[in-house]
Nucleic acid binder design. Structure first.
Lengths: 197, 197, 197, 197
DNA sequence: GATGAATGAGTATTCATTCAT
DNA sequence: GATGAATGAATACTCATTCAT
């Protein structure tokens, strides 16, 4: 059982890497088992189906990001810094995105979408809480918090995932975020230093 | 010549409808020709490939929406009204979206993406011009216009395409739009009456 | 493993027979699997492609003929008899050529060519050795052995494969062979009795 | 009619060039009409079928070579020179073989075969006559002339068409030819100077 | 836990040929 | 003489999944 679990984790890692590198649709079960050095039957011993594998891969991915997000939310850095940190955590890290813009490639559109949807719904409550914290601290001033948070995430995903954004994009994003949350101008300005590529 | 052109339009319409209804990937060339009552050879007489067909279908779709957008931009309604009108034009109309949320279904994710990308790049310049008009009229006040416009489109696409949005979403969207463009609060308030479902 | 190997041999035999009987181009994968009573997937489990199958079929065929040729070369019959025997071995046997002149039919031209080329290059060295043996025994007297051997094979292939040759053809072939190798007239005369149809 | 004839010749030339350059099987009717700038219907107005076109193309080709062969046979150079000249005429000239070894490529195997067969049967009688002339002049001494001539042609075709032959091949070919025809050693030696590449 | 032989539904594309105008 | 829209038979290959051992 222990052993089996470890094996499964291994397979998940491999599938994960391959899905991101070559795209879900372009990765055959054959490819995965070859890379893993196991037989076909073994693969189906661990996974119900290829789609199920994708689901688990995404779950694994998001879990990690959620973990990070929660840690940030619980830490004692300033509220604006928490927000930026969490949003950054929601972006596929370099390790996860071995090829620049991989998630944007048409063959990855399906996976990207699933990730986005799950990320979106999981992230909103955490961020909302932080925003509320900010309101209590009089740093922010707004209503309809979950809706506002969602929009922030939508924009950040669309703009930053692509990997093709300019300094102006960041500038506008900062401005938008501040206004969306009812913060004083300049509150989030430090993002500039973080997100810059 | 005439005849051929008309035939092609017909086929395009059929393909269009089927792609949206059942999804691009789920629609076989077989299905299309059966619906159209033509032979396989005829299909390939008009289209290079299935993918090429998709490209043309999307082109057709966007062209219509661009047409509408340009008309609105040129009309003499108020600037805020133009903006709302154009953004609305960019959303698939009911006729185009026979099944609620069709574009959101996983099998349509590819098509949806292509549409979005093309729409995004085509729409930004038109909207940007209208915003400039608004700035000249002192209704708006902002810089980095294309970036701002793009963010508006991103949000509107993500929120409204889904078909699953609340009154609060609209409210926040209005607020965001006004602030993004540097308009006085209430300027865009009339959206409420338009977009409501 | 055993099982798989045997199955593959079986399939190879079937493909072989069909390619020769109906021609490579006229034999569909469909035909083969129907005859073999297997599913399409099974076919592609064993073979990379139809072309690859042809390659293996030819390999198999040649291997058998090479085997025979080597045995003949190693036996202790006279050198001229060895030469005739090897050349005969290089001709598709009756079992291999179920329909008279099948290899000559236009639909078989591709296969025939591949066979010829491989046969040619594999056979030359063996025959050359035998000729050298003959030279040592003072039965033959010539230089440029590989070139001479090749010409013999070319002629024998072209003339005899067709299945349409006369006694005169054989006569001239004998004469040519003797002179090509620098043998005394009459040395190879016994061919007459062997090759006659 | 005149005009039609000329048009057909034009088409034949084009088809000819394309068949040789790209292979018969790789040349679509589409390709031919595009190159010729005519409509599909027009093509089928002039040719019964694609295969018929090939037949005519080959006929045209051979006719030219036969013409040359006959001229050589009727000229008053020496008999050995006639033989060499005719054999050379039977080889596709440079103009006809724009790409080295084109006829040897697998996609040309069909055409190559048809050419060979027709050439073979048409060439034998002419060459046979010249050999008889040589016998009368006591230069040659042999029987079974057509069979011997055929073998010469077979070898020359196989060896020289390929374009990959060595000096030794030529040497052996000369030797073989002389012996096959019962000529004195050295009679055909001048070939060396002609065929050399 | 692990294997690997066997499956079979699913699919886009090619191309020579015809015929009404 | 010439057109070009329409045909439709023909075909190789993929790949996730199963199951007896």
């Amino acid at each position: 059982m222990r052993k089996g679990e470890r094996r499964k984790q291994e397979l998940l890692q491999i599938a994960y890497r391959m899905f991101i590198t070559r795209g879900y649709e372009n990765t055959g079960v054959e490819d995965i088992i070859e890379e893993a050095g196991i037989a076909k039957g073994t693969y189906y011993y661990y996974f119900e189906s290829k789609e199920q594998t994708l689901e688990e891969v995404i779950g694994m991915m998001i879990d990690e990001e959620m973990e990070a997000a929660k840690e940030i939310a619980a830490s004692d850095i300033s509220v604006p810094q928490k927000i930026v940190g969490i949003i950054s955590a929601a972006r596929p890290t370099q390790e996860e995105q071995p090829i620049e813009g991989a998630l944007m490639r048409p063959e990855n559109v399906l996976m990207h979408n699933k990730i986005r949807q799950k990320l979106m719904s999981d992230m909103v409550p955490i961020l909302a809480k932080v925003v509320e914290e900010g309101i209590n601290e009089k740093i922010f001033d707004c209503d309809n918090i979950p809706e506002r948070v969602r929009m922030m995430l939508v924009v950040s995903g669309e703009i930053f995932d692509e990997g093709q954004f300019t300094e102006r994009d960041v500038e506008v994003f900062i401005d938008m975020t501040e206004k969306l949350l009812g913060a004083k101008s300049g509150t989030m300005n430090f993002i500039n230093k973080l997100i810059k590529r």
